[in-house]
Design a protein around this nucleic acid. Structure first.
Lengths: 291, 291
DNA sequence: TAGCACATTTTGTCCTAGACAAAACAAATT
DNA sequence: AATTTGTTTTGTCTAGGACAAAATGTGCTA
């Protein structure tokens, strides 16, 4: 029963958790977890349970918790910690958002689209993004931590939102003038929904934004900024983006772009960033876009 | 002049080329390339030129060329090889597609949308995808190899296409019945445009398809297939997906899904795959979707 | 109480050189 | 032309150590 069906190589675990190979090995050395089985070649084979445990740890790290503490805990300990975090955060609340979550759990595409559309119509584009979509995404994260929603359901919702935003985006007039903003994420960051939300808010405010989507190499961001003659480059970092690299990456881009080009950074990943290089601005929530 | 501005750690090179750390080190040992500088800590520092060279090699590998051959070549050698490949492949041709490329190079969003819309109206959804979008993406790859188009321009086009498809998708009736198809890509594969194209073709044929988007862990694909009660799971693999893992990944998924659930695989990555496990079907081009 | 400078701990990434199996290729056979 | 066999190529994984950047803790001052 407790026996696992499939075993995972260190490479698959890296992919499925976002935790680097080297990190996994050094954790094993330092904290004594996870200690996987080995095949006859001596290679690590992680069980389903270990994979799941690592995914939970990863998720908790996104809340600012550090490995040294988390890796001491067993499954029960993680349960407790998750419960604690949930109680510390504002409850899901918002009748509206609870409804959406229920519809997602019911896998009802049509109902979902209707619900979104209602909110959109009553709130208008900008408030819809700020007061419905953004809190919804938070709520989904919490629901996952509470075991109420599956990862694939998050993907499902995400796709539905992407589709919804694209279609409504088209109904807004396309701004043509200045200022121009370039939106992208760096390689390693694949969460592009944030970009789309930003694009939508900007367009609702009549700002001309160009979205390059995810995983754009730095030199290409620079080149695009030059050729599109933008005044600012907007990057988003999800909580999944490796904490360590964020500041360095931003500084590197800052060094490459001309000083008159501003850099805006947003997303959950930059939440806890303190000091930023000159000419870099942070927007914690979309409301505070520096425009 | 020839001096490089910025130096790249092995980690950044991995991210920007998709070539693994270990692979980079083993290439250096075996083929004597690339040999980066070192910092005082002894860590590798790759130059811009080396990075660019590796990106070109990576791209050529997508055409089926192997490292042993490619790593002997200098920049001039790569030039020759790229030229050879271009001449071997059908020329870009198609007045239509040349036009689109020009508009992309001019960064003209409005013109691009108009062009796409013209094709879409005259060809209908399915032919638009098969005879315009698919060849266009091929042509872009070639134009990149010929140095005629920048990577960021590919991203730009990609985003425009995604936006276009989402908006037109909405004009089609949403099929509700059977058969149901689940679409996704596995972790490591972020090229989701193929999924969207597949979704669009399927919907044009009245098939009910559910798109989970990119980077869905295998167990979640399985879970979603069960809960959505789909008859088939469709995966796409771009040429950027590590060749080595494709067969293994497909087999692993095959082993996890119940036998009555079919698996369809598509995309450039599966082009050269010969034998497939029982119950796995390949669609080389979208025209041959097994439905 | 808040801000700042400094010391300590934690943490992720990178190093070397060797090993091995799976995939790709080439050659020979049915 | 398709299948079997042998050979070469190739990517991924191993170990234990090292180091700097980030995060945290402590003491001092305004």
């Amino acid at each position: 029963m407790g026996q696992s069906r499939t075993l995972h190589s260190i490479g698959s675990v890296e992919r499925d958790t976002g935790i680097g190979r080297d990190t996994l090995r050094v954790w094993e050395r330092r904290y004594g977890f996870p200690v996987p089985k080995r095949n006859d070649k001596g290679e690590r084979l992680y069980s389903d349970e270990q994979l799941r445990h690592l995914q939970r740890i990863r998720r908790l790290m996104d809340f600012g918790l550090r490995p040294g503490r988390l890796l001491k805990l067993d499954a029960v300990g993680l349960d407790a910690l998750e419960a604690e975090i949930l109680s510390a955060r504002p409850a899901i609340g918002e009748e509206n958002i609870r409804h959406v979550l229920e519809v997602v759990r019911a896998h009802d595409s049509v109902g979902l689209e209707q619900l979104l559309d209602e909110s959109y119509r009553s709130q208008g584009m900008e408030d819809f993004i700020l007061k419905t979509v953004a809190p919804l995404l938070h709520a989904v994260g919490e629901a996952w931590a509470a075991g109420e929603i599956a990862v694939y359901e998050e993907h499902y919702l995400s796709q539905q939102l992407i589709h919804f935003l694209h279609t409504r985006l088209n109904r807004q007039p396309r701004p043509t003038g200045s200022p121009r903003i370039l939106l992208a994420t760096l390689p390693g960051e694949l969460h592009t929904l944030g970009l789309l939300m930003t694009l939508t808010v900007l367009r609702a405010r009549g700002v001309h934004a160009i979205n390059l989507g995810g995983e754009v190499p730095m030199d290409q961001v620079k080149e695009a900024a030059r050729r599109f003659q933008v005044e600012a480059v907007g990057l988003t970092f999800s909580s999944a983006y490796p904490h360590h690299s964020i500041r360095g990456d931003i500084e590197e881009l800052r060094a490459r772009l001309p000083a008159e080009t501003q850099i805006w950074v947003g997303g959950e990943g930059v939440w806890r960033l303190r000091k930023l290089p000159e000419g870099v601005f942070k927007f914690q929530s979309l409301e505070k876009l520096p425009i």
